[in-house]
């Protein structure tokens, strides 16, 4: 892909700033005073259950929503009044592929690329289709594609103009674990090239790929923090099984520091200051099997900026690290 320096928002200004956004559809309140600030160059995750208001918020950023009140600033521009200028600078991947199934990926990209008269369109199309590994299928109609391939075509469309800000609405919904990993690897590559990525998900394990995460419920943002900080708010239940068959259960806030203290009562040397346990997640094991790598589960499934956060099930390897399997389900 061609790399151009993003002419982002003014230095220090957030890429996206949403203040007290409200939107109702009749009696249903979709957004109830949501506020979010996304820094330039970060991967920002919006996490919440279905119907929490994630897609509505994304539509507001893209200027295809008329909020009842509140403000949305994108790359320093008003997302409502200056929506056409905003749209020139962002890439949007809706929750559904939202492409024409009778047409091929190339024909879809030509069509959507012409809207803003994308320069060097043919080269860009080749770049993005190679990026999502669909170049070989560029002329096949989309109705012959699997769900994951359509998602890749949709991502290619979002990347077509090499946007400063990438808006992704549940990009990995319905895609298999291998493809999901590929997607996240690509998002990190884009981040390393200075792009800002705003992504929604209802999968907790995906939130761990983000630099910061906002949790949304019933149209309100509950918390915006790093995944590690959010994780640290949770308590760990520790159960010790003794030889006499009895169990000792206790909840601890900081697991790795608390474990040596707990075990000291059973003879653990005070030389041990921290205890970390690392187990592969089910996803790691399955991916290892698919790849024919028996030991895959014992090591991080892939590298990248987030290191252990993408690897196996890690408990207390270092503060906040670890994509625990118990965090991996839907919200």
């Amino acid at each position: 892909m061609s790399a151009s320096d993003p002419a982002g928002a003014a230095a220090g200004a957030p890429a996206v700033a949403i203040e007290q956004l409200r939107k109702s559809y009749g009696p249903i309140t979709a957004l109830d005073g949501a506020s979010i600030s996304v820094d330039t160059g970060e991967i920002f995750g919006l996490v919440g259950p279905n119907g929490a208001g994630k897609t509505t918020l994304i539509k507001a950023i893209c200027g295809i929503l008329k909020p009842d009140s509140g403000s949305v600033s994108v790359l320093g521009l008003d997302a409502a009044r200056e929506r056409h200028a905003v749209r020139r600078r962002l890439g949007y991947m809706p929750q559904t592929p939202a492409l024409y199934e009778d047409l091929s990926p190339r024909e879809n990209l030509v069509f959507f690329g012409r809207g803003f008269r994308t320069s060097g369109l043919s080269d860009r199309i080749r770049d993005v289709l190679e990026f999502v590994e669909l170049w070989e299928r560029r002329d096949d109609p989309l109705h012959n594609f699997s769900g994951g391939m359509k998602q890749r075509a949709s991502l290619a469309c979002a990347l077509l103009r090499d946007p400063e800000l990438l808006i992704l609405d549940e990009p990995t919904a319905g895609v298999d674990p291998t493809l999901k990993q590929n997607f996240w690897r690509r998002f990190r590559e884009l981040k390393e090239r200075g792009r800002t990525i705003f992504v929604t998900t209802n999968m907790m394990d995906e939130a761990l790929h983000c630099d910061r995460v906002a949790v949304i419920r019933a149209g309100s943002v509950l918390i915006t923090e790093t995944p590690e900080a959010i994780r640290a708010r949770g308590r760990t239940r520790v159960t010790l099984g003794l030889r006499d068959g009895s169990l000792r259960e206790q909840e601890v806030l900081a697991y790795e520091e608390e474990m040596p203290r707990l075990l000291a009562a059973y003879g653990l040397s005070d030389e041990v200051a921290r205890i970390s346990v690392r187990r592969p997640s089910l996803e790691d094991v399955v991916l290892g099997m698919i790849a024919g790598d028996a030991g895959a589960g014992e090591k991080p499934a892939h590298g990248g900026a987030h290191g252990g956060a993408h690897g196996g099930r890690t408990t207390g390897a270092h503060p906040g690290a670890g994509a625990d399997a118990e965090d991996g389900g839907n919200v």
Partner: peptide, 14 residues
Amino acid sequence: KDGTLGRMFVYGYR
């Protein structure tokens, strides 16, 4: 309904 109209707007069509 399919979202292609919304995508057209976001991709520069008036």
